[in-house]
Simulated scan of single mutants.
Amino acid sequence: MNTKEPELFCRQVNKLIEHGCEITDYEQAIMILNKINYYKLSAYFLPFRDNDGNYKQGTTLLQVYKIYEFDRKLSAFLYGIIQKIEVFVKTQIAYYHSNKYGALGYLDHSNVADKMIEKHKKLIDNFNTEVKRNKELLFVKH
């Protein structure tokens, strides 16, 4: 397996410079790479690469870092929204299903579409296995 050797932060900064990335503040560059893995950040450099593998003229680490930060904040924002939607949808499904089939109706195969019965059986078997395996956990006891 062809693995890359680990590099010190200063060497990582030098590698960026060698490939044409403009670094205006060396210490700031080291702090950025100290926070974000070099290889994670390298994905954000892809649109700034020329065919020869070097960075296009005018590409700066700070510019790429700002794109990374925007993406990180956008992902966190969207995750928060998606999480609220997920909880809402689960609540609606649980409310509908429990009121139609009873509190334990989810355990009954007859409450599932015929084509889903086998998957439902596997799901319930997995559920029961996990309950047994984790029976000492407080939320499982509850």
Results as ranks from 00 to 15, higher is better:
residue 140 V to Q: 01
residue 55 Y to M: 13
residue 85 I to V: 10
residue 92 Q to G: 03
residue 62 L to R: 15
residue 38 Y to S: 00
residue 131 V to K: 01
residue 89 V to D: 01
residue 49 R to H: 06
residue 123 L to R: 08
residue 118 E to L: 15
residue 131 V to G: 03
residue 51 N to D: 13
residue 29 A to C: 06
residue 86 E to D: 10
residue 81 I to F: 13
residue 58 G to D: 03
residue 113 A to P: 08
residue 5 E to R: 13
residue 47 P to I: 04
residue 99 N to Y: 13
residue 33 L to P: 01
residue 9 F to G: 05
residue 126 N to G: 10
residue 49 R to C: 09
residue 20 G to K: 03
residue 48 F to K: 01
residue 119 K to L: 12
residue 81 I to S: 00
residue 121 K to H: 09
residue 24 T to D: 10
residue 115 K to F: 09
residue 89 V to M: 05
residue 57 Q to N: 05
residue 3 T to S: 14
residue 115 K to D: 10
residue 27 E to S: 11
residue 133 R to Q: 13
residue 70 F to E: 00
residue 32 I to T: 03
residue 131 V to M: 11
residue 135 K to Q: 12
residue 139 F to V: 10
residue 104 L to E: 09
residue 51 N to K: 09
residue 14 N to P: 03
residue 70 F to T: 04
residue 38 Y to T: 02
residue 5 E to F: 10
residue 80 G to M: 03
residue 36 I to S: 02
residue 23 I to Q: 01
residue 71 D to E: 10
residue 120 H to I: 04
residue 45 F to P: 02
residue 36 I to T: 06
residue 74 L to C: 08
residue 47 P to E: 03
residue 126 N to L: 15
residue 121 K to Q: 12
residue 66 K to G: 04
residue 142 H to M: 14
residue 125 D to L: 15
residue 78 L to M: 14
residue 109 H to K: 15
residue 75 S to V: 13
residue 110 S to P: 00
residue 6 P to W: 06
residue 72 R to H: 05
residue 128 N to D: 07
residue 3 T to F: 15
residue 43 A to R: 12
residue 127 F to W: 09
residue 73 K to A: 08
residue 103 A to L: 15
residue 118 E to K: 11
residue 141 K to C: 11
residue 18 E to S: 15
residue 139 F to G: 07
residue 56 K to D: 01
residue 76 A to L: 14
residue 105 G to T: 04
residue 105 G to R: 04
residue 114 D to P: 08
residue 116 M to N: 11
residue 99 N to T: 12
residue 104 L to I: 06
residue 111 N to W: 12
residue 140 V to L: 07
residue 17 I to F: 10
residue 134 N to G: 07
residue 99 N to S: 11
residue 37 N to Q: 02
residue 79 Y to L: 14
residue 15 K to Y: 15
residue 12 Q to G: 05
residue 84 K to Y: 04
residue 124 I to K: 01
residue 89 V to T: 08
